[in-house]
Amino acid sequence: MPLHTVSFLVENKPGVLFKVANLFRRRGYNIQSLTVGPVEGSPLSRMTVVVDAESRILNQIVEQLDKMVDVVKVKRLDPLRTLSRELLLIKMKTSDPIARIEAVNTVNAYHGLILDVDPDILIAEVTGPTDEIDEFLKRIGPIGIEEMSRTGAAAIERGNVKLA
């Protein structure tokens, strides 16, 4: 099933994340990722959810979210106009000097940053669209992933359009 990005503004108060997550669980919607953060200068938070759904379900996700009292505005983002980024923090085992060089090269190739260097360990930060992060991980896999933390997608539409 195709992936879709839905962004929505919610009241920034306790329990709202639970209710949103509960809605997805109860209705059996498949979440690929969910990100939340407060909106500057506003009592709202923005949530971005990437879902795996065909169109009837996608429509239901939008409408069921919109129905919640604590959800202020919902929008299915246009895939052709959407900028989407996630952040990856990754710890790599690089005791072997060749592996280390390859790791650094790969991080550089994906415009990542080396954040921490230890005799056996490199920590890097990589941002990009989800498929790019997936690609990066595929490349780095053979070198050795010790630990990783991904944020899920933050997304915004191009041009003079606004969610709120």
Binding site: Q60, Q64, D66, K67
Partner: peptide, 8 residues
């Protein structure tokens, strides 16, 4: 009156 019922 409930939009989410449409096409559900």
């Amino acid at each position: 009156v409930d939009r989410s019922e449409i096409d559900k």
